[in-house]
């Protein structure tokens, strides 16, 4: 949405070099979400709507806390409520704040064909530039987390910006500011990873969560949003968090070998036809009724 003082290091659908690539030494920012201390109060949802001027959406009531089933083009931050039955039969909440993960290797950006519709700033934030978006929805196919959502009226795609506008001014994202339990933290990737590992260790050692761990999936080069999970071996429990996300193989094939094969074949074909004409010429000089060659019909 906003570039403000940010510099761009990766750009979708772009031929040539990228303005901010390699231009600046800046640390990667990161949001840490400790699911073990989230109480599902939805303060972060409200803060997100307030700061980004998003309208209140219709809610559904199906006798659960999940009053909105998934994020929308104008609802970027959603708590997913998962009731989990433990081995001893007792229940516990696994609540997860869901939003764009700000992947280091974003599938949305890899898939996007429009010049500069998706950018990654040097601080790691992945941001959609709606002015350049053509509404093809390729990003929806490229994202392993089901995050980009289409505005059906304008045919442009929206998602969480990690408050790039606030961050570029030295502020923390709105959701961080609103969290009453302190389960949200914001800082450099290094610091957040450190904090997350410490918390996971605490959960393992002191709180009887032997599987506790940090979710920072390597398949997408790590993410700009990391989770602390009570059970890091089964992230699917947290509302379908993929255990090993990566850019879909078909998207990689499509944007890689298929593209090269196609380009070589098209240019080679054109050259081949031209050379054929130089070597063999036309099959006949002109329509032969006018200038008969050989036998007359």
């Amino acid at each position: 949405m906003s570039q403000a003082t940010l510099r761009v290091q990766k750009m979708s659908g772009h031929a040539g070099s990228v303005p901010g690539d390699d231009a600046q030494r800046e640390f990667t920012v990161c949001k840490l979400i400790d699911t073990t201390t989230c109480i599902g109060c939805k303060a972060c949802e409200v803060a997100c709507m307030e700061w980004n001027d998003l309208p209140f959406g219709e809610t559904v009531f199906d006798n659960t806390y999940q009053t909105m089933p998934e994020t929308r083009w104008n609802y970027w931050n959603l708590i997913l409520f998962n009731e989990h039955e433990k081995e001893d039969g007792s229940l516990m909440w696994l609540m997860r704040k869901n939003q764009c993960m700000h992947c280091a290797e974003p599938g949305c950006l890899a898939a996007c064909p429009a010049d500069g519709a998706i950018v990654q700033y040097t601080n790691g934030i992945v941001d959609f530039q709606q002015a350049n978006c053509i509404g093809c929805g390729y990003c929806i196919t490229g994202c392993p987390f089901d995050i980009p959502k289409m505005n059906p009226k304008t045919n442009r795609v929206f998602k969480c910006t990690l408050c790039a506008d606030r961050v570029s001014e030295g502020l923390e994202p709105a959701c961080i500011k609103s969290c009453p339990t302190g389960c949200l933290h914001f800082g450099s990737k290094e610091d957040m990873k450190d904090l997350a590992e410490k918390r996971a260790k605490q959960l393992r050692d002191d709180y009887n969560f032997p599987q506790a761990g940090v979710y920072d999936p390597a398949g997408v080069g790590g993410t700009g949003v990391v989770y602390v999970l009570h059970d890091a071996t089964r992230p699917e429990l947290y509302g379908g968090l993929p255990s090993n996300p990566s850019i879909p193989w078909s998207v990689k094939l499509w944007k890689g070998p298929l593209k090269w094969l196609g380009n070589v074949a098209m240019v080679g074909g054109l050259i081949g036809l031209f050379v054929h004409y130089l070597r063999f010429g036309p099959k006949s000089r002109e329509d032969e009724d006018i200038h008969p060659r050989g036998e007359n019909p």
Binding site: T141, S250, V251, L258, G262, M266, H276, P282, K283, S284
Partner: peptide
């Protein structure tokens, strides 16, 4: 995932046919 592979692949095949078609009908067979 299938569509993003099939669509450009099929398009590329037709582009190959299309180039030969133009070449034959405009340049080769007067």
């Amino acid at each position: 995932y299938l569509a993003v592979l099939i669509h450009p692949s099929a398009a590329l095949l037709t582009i190959g046919l299309f180039l030969i078609h133009i070449y034959m009908s405009v340049f080769a067979e007067r």
